[in-house]
């Protein structure tokens, strides 16, 4: 069941490649706007790079959440999935994993290019990718709760951002903190471990909350 969900969602994502790509382009464009707004000073850019890339990643993954349940909700598939005897927990986990594979992973892999634009060096680029790989699944997991709660509501997208962005703050702090620490040469293990801890915590709790929210929204 779990595998089936993942494969199915990946296939669906492949069929609507434009959506997936536009999330990535959004990420790219938002990050590129900052030097234009702030000025081309390399030192300043290097200083703000972790925060800028991470905030853009937050916004991009928030925008991709709309795809998580909305289509299945509209064509009635979601209702059928709720009726299956398999635990909803696994269904949610599978959908979130698929979403992460098409939004979080490419975003993390693309981030070094943006890091270079901001004058980050080799080791820091690596930390940036690692922190994004650890952090973006958390964003998808926490976001899935918000996506389930706002399913089918008017103004759902804006509402989703109000619900989800405050909950993203710890991920932002630990993620950009790790990159920051690698720039200044301080120990970055602490923030990466904390990011991992948040990931484990949200792996356990978030799908459960999302399942509850889906049942509420679909009643």
């Amino acid at each position: 069941m779990f595998r089936w969900i993942v494969v199915r969602d990946l296939t669906l994502a492949w069929k609507s490649r434009v959506d997936v790509l536009s999330t990535l382009f959004f990420f790219l464009i938002v990050v590129s706007l900052f030097p234009l707004g702030i000025g081309p000073e390399t030192n300043l850019l290097r200083l703000i790079a972790p925060g800028v890339v991470w905030v853009a990643a937050l916004l991009a993954s928030m925008l991709s959440l709309g795809r998580l349940f909305a289509n299945d909700y509209q064509d009635g598939t979601l209702e059928q999935l709720l009726l299956t005897p398999q635990p909803l927990y696994l269904v949610v986990l599978g959908k979130v994993l698929a979403l992460w594979l098409v939004s979080g992973v490419p975003l993390a892999l693309m981030s070094p290019v943006l890091g270079i634009q901001f004058g980050l060096s080799g080791n820091t680029l690596f930390v940036l990718v690692v922190s994004l790989l650890l952090g973006t699944p958390v964003l998808a997991l926490i976001g899935s709760i918000g996506a389930a709660l706002t399913l089918g509501l008017r103004g759902g997208g804006l509402l989703l951002s109000i619900l989800v962005l405050p909950l993203y703050i710890p991920v932002l702090i630990f993620g950009s903190g790790a990159v920051d620490a690698s720039i200044t040469g301080m120990g970055l293990q602490g923030s990466l471990s904390l990011l991992g801890a948040v990931l484990v915590l949200s792996l356990v709790f978030a799908p459960w909350a999302t399942s509850a929210a889906l049942r509420i929204s679909l009643e």
Binding site: L149, P170, F174, G177, L194, A209, I216
Partner: peptide, 28 residues
Amino acid sequence: SRADRAGAVLAIVGVINVPIIYFSVQWW
């Protein structure tokens, strides 16, 4: 009835998050 229960899920998620947020902000 949906508003009540959706709010409950959000509030509970918020309560779990409050210590994490507080701790992360302190650390930051």
